[in-house]
Nucleic acid binder design. Structure first.
Lengths: 204, 204
DNA sequence: CACCCCATGTAAAGCGTTACATGATTGC
DNA sequence: GCAATCATGTAACGCTTTACATGGGGTG
């Protein structure tokens, strides 16, 4: 039920086609929501049926035609109503953590390999988010930005993404280190816990 | 598809009924997986059909009868095979963050209220996890524990839960503060960002 | 020539939640 | 008396993923 509102919120950043919305989801929205294209197209169809978005077909020359979606007044009203409703408690599902819970049944090297990959993935997302942050701030300090920017919503979620991936990367490094210790292995500089930047960074 | 493995892993901690498994999920497993009882009972039925768990009906006197499940050898084999398979990239879905992304459309007081509740929820989970941590460590240092404990899997995931909730609480406080700044509001000691403990705490 | 980008969808299958049903026992 | 705990499930519904279908244009 929340996908529809995630789509409406994403449309606040500007009209878009289904394809463009899918791309926004991959980048800015990824930190808090995700959906496959077929689900988005289906939901956009329902939103149109319900009058919450308006669709305009744009005929293109060297590209397939597309349908540009925009949020309607009814859509804004529905969104406002939903915004004040209580968010449901978040329930995480992490495939890797299930495996880590059974680490005592595994070859430690396999466990470490899983953790390294996850850490590297987190670090790459982290650097993407940090690049976006620089683009958004354009040299302003945070305090300055919070006062002068037109919108702050996407910045708040961006910072959440940074904190989230940072915590993830740090935990992976810690877990790798813990597994090594358990097995009495000497430290390996390539996987040694390296504090990327403490969480204080997130709060500052 | 991962619920079955989450159940198998949870059974490694000892045989249990569906009801007991549901309780374990609420406490120790909550940091990385969740499922409603009907889904668990259904999945346990399938696991039994596939021979991965064995069910023994226990007739009780003053309580309804129950079915105690235990992991079979085939179950262990299936689990081991799955443990080495690559974990799928984690995809978060956070209802609250969708709302925060639209914070510019909201009454700031409503946004702050949402964030406070989420923070308090995170803090309460945090203190539960910390209590469990104390029980598990029983006065030992972490290094000592990692060498002497029978299993470390559930400890590793517990620490993840602590880091996760800590990061969440900190971000909520930061976001509340950011919204106040945006509106030029003076600090209110009841919601002022309070560093519960930096992420270095998680790594130490 | 192969591959990725653009662009939208259908159909089927799988995963997950909610409502409902049942009923004794224990603690406040 | 009321609520919570113990204990297991069915049925209906909704959400989400995956496989498939289509086809031109740009890049190495």
């Amino acid at each position: 039920m929340s996908l529809r509102y995630a789509l409406l919120v994403t449309l606040l950043d500007g009209d878009a086609s289904g394809y463009e919305l899918a791309k926004r989801f991959d980048i800015r929205v990824a930190a808090y929501w995700h959906a496959q294209p077929p689900q988005m197209y289906a939901e956009l169809g329902k939103l149109e049926d319900d009058g919450l978005v308006h669709a305009e077909t744009v005929v293109q020359d060297r590209r397939p035609n597309k349908r540009m979606f925009s949020i309607t007044e009814a859509g804004q009203a529905a969104l406002h109503e939903w915004l004040v409703s209580p968010p449901r408690p978040l329930a995480t599902k992490d495939d890797l953590l299930v495996r880590v819970a059974a680490v005592d049944e595994m070859d430690p090297l396999v466990a470490i390999d899983h953790l390294r990959r996850r850490r590297d993935h987190a670090l790459s997302k982290l650097s993407t988010y940090r690049e976006i942050e620089q683009l958004v701030l354009r040299g302003r300090t945070e305090v300055d930005y919070l006062h002068t920017a037109r919108h702050i919503g996407s910045y708040l979620t961006l910072v959440k993404g940074i904190g989230y991936e940072l915590e993830r990367a740090d935990w992976c490094n810690w877990a790798i280190h813990a597994i090594r210790q358990r097995h009495g292995w000497t430290a390996d500089p390539t996987t040694e816990p390296q504090m990327t930047a403490a969480a204080t960074d997130v709060v500052t």
